[in-house]
Design a protein around this nucleic acid. Sequence first.
DNA 1: GAGCACTGC
Length: 846
Amino acid sequence: MSKKKQKDPGRGIAQLLQTLSKKDTASETTRGQKRNRDGTPVVTIPKVEAVREDVFPQKGTGKLMKPEKTATAPTIRDRPRRASPLAKQSSSKPISKLPNPLPGRKTSHKPDEQLKESLQPATPLSRRQDALLHTRKTLPIWPHADSIRSALRKNNILVLTGETGSGKSTQVPQFLASEPWCTKCIAITQPRRVAAISLARRVAEEMGSHFGRQSPAAKVGYCVRFDNATGPNTKIKFLTEGMLLQETLRDPTLQQYSAVVVDEVHERSVNVDLILGFLKNLVAGVEQGQKRKHPLKVVVMSATADVEALVRLFNNDSNSLDEKGSEAAETDDTDSEGSWSGISSDAESDHKDQSKKSKSQSKSNSKSKSKTSQVATCFVEGRQYPVKTTYLPEPTQDWVESALIRIFQINHREPLPGDILVFLTGQDTIESLEKLVNDYAEGQAKDVPKLLCLPLFAALPQHAQQLVFNPTPPRTRKVILATNIAETSVTVPGVRFVIDCGKSKIKQFRNRLGLETLLSKPISKSAAIQRQGRAGREAPGQCYRLYTEESYNDFDERTTPEILRCDLSHAILTMKARGVDEVVNFPFLDRPHREALEQALLQLLNLGCMSDTGSITELGLKVAKLPLTPALGRVLVEAARPERDCLSEAIDIISALSVEDVFLNLVTEERKEEAEAARRELYRREGDHMTLLVTVQRYAEEQSDRKAWCQRHFVSHRAMQNVMNIRKQLHSQSLSLLPPSSSSSSSSLTAHQPPSTLTETKAASLLRCLLRGFIANTARLMPDGSYKTLTGSQTVAIHPSSVLFGRKTEGIVFTEFVYTGKAWARGVSACQLDWMGEVVGELMGS
DNA sequence: GAGCACTGC
């Protein structure tokens, strides 16, 4: 409030503009998105023609594009149907329309029916197919079709690097579908649900096929959690990475597939790393005579991936490389030279170098094998307009201010159209910059474009997120203030200017402390390039980096893969359940640190998921099958024990813990107080978990109008719908957890229950189950009023979002332990010290 | 007194 200068907008603008002219000395370089592997620019490719949105289906547009499918239909139905003119961001304004994942067709609000309508009578499938064929032929990947096919006839593995807009995700599966070896289904993995669904829809159109559940004849389908839209004739199946991993539990050799295409590998999720390792083992196993009738073809696709590392992963016997160091063996490779570089095009020389290197390594290190699989590589150029990049001449302390200056500079100098996308670190900086921009915008001259400031971050309510997709009003420029949600998950249309603060909040697990940190860190070069590229999607653009070129040069080449900075217990349990006995020998693209592995193994041992010989226990196998973290899975298994007798309630709590915040986050003091009062009937003094239980129970019991119930209690309806999906899934999966004798309890799971009351014994039972999974996350009250963890003697504070905030109780158990400037316990329940003692005793005894 | 982004038979 001390910023008095904002109160004089006219003067503020003058000052800003003064600052602008000083900053004009910023060093400028021009770079297109096309670049060498070290991030240095390459001569920009000539542009063929304007890149139209419908030529390149936008993938990964995040949660903003809700799939038009039944599972999520309620969310869509909730939205106001009537169009409204774009107005100020009064957050409850109805939105005019949903983003349309497939331009050329109206987005339907009644998914299935309208989709069918629009597909069938209006445009016969084949006519649409013919129309699309024309645009398909203009994709950069199109000329590579034959070489991709022939590479996979000769080899089982292809590493395909294709930059944004190359068309690889939609075309590669179609290139392969008619191949003689392709007798079964092709799987294509995606990191996000929306991407899987919208790609499937697009490919179905291009093939002139029905899609998903439209018809049993559909050749293209998708499979994501809660929504399996595949049929008996599905030939091309888009699925999330997690889904494919689940399938490997039932079908370890992936018999149902002739090929697996792993897309977006450069994002390096833990799941993709596991999939690559499993596929590597599978391909190697098949070559050694493991039971698979046909070889499995694997295509690894990535935007900027380290081709060399991928080739090495599939080419070497990394186990022997790491552990055995066996003698060099001569393999007959006289005829393999051709297949190595056979189809690389633009980057041929580059890749030849790599393959030689990899090959010599494989020769000297790997064990003798009659048939080492060869890896083909292919590079496909992308399509991207050039982006002119400007650095600051000197580092800045206050990049919120620097961003503010740049926004007004752009607005004064650059003609419309051209929206601005600003990358910031989090909600707090977004909101303070939003306020500053709005204050200064008041004082702008009449002849410059108006500014429309739109925040964009994951915690923002859906309807507020949707605003970024609305067309920009006349004589107005949109300024989107975003977190890195806009880096990969959401593609904002109309952006020609990017302002990049060079930082983002990164989650990192601290093994020794057992907590995760969420701190603002410099981004990597590849992330900076990704952000920059967001300015060149539709036209040549500009990128302003709020740091110096020297700082950029100091950035890491790429973002540390998630597997090197997360809690590995889930990943290891996943591996153990799929028969990987020696985790240290698993073919990791990046090998996690020994300490992280040890910590995770210890955690699994404590949960009873593993024996002390390192093999998975029966209990561990049960936990591995659940769509939960090992700790939450352990809680569920505990709750199914007859003496605990609280499975149904545990499922309610765990479901609520599995979604983002159930309780809406209110902005003004007034609304917060209102919410407090409305929610009071849900709050339980035992803590957040019992409060969640009561919330889920009340919601589930509400038969007339659940949406209104949510509004009354300031609860997120969207989150609760998700809770109900998860709850249903967990119910059906946990029937097998119950002892066979307890048929009464299992029927009570499914039967309609009378309004529930939470007794004290039930609450105590639930808390003891929670403790069994989260004994590492317990703390006790110190004489000075602080809490210290039982195991690490770490000071921890109850998070302000907790119902126990400000309360004192002898002991607490919490389901989240995060450091953000301070160690916070989130999801907190009060518990007795002797309950903790019981669990510790059990651990010591066993 | 505070919350980067994804995902799951």
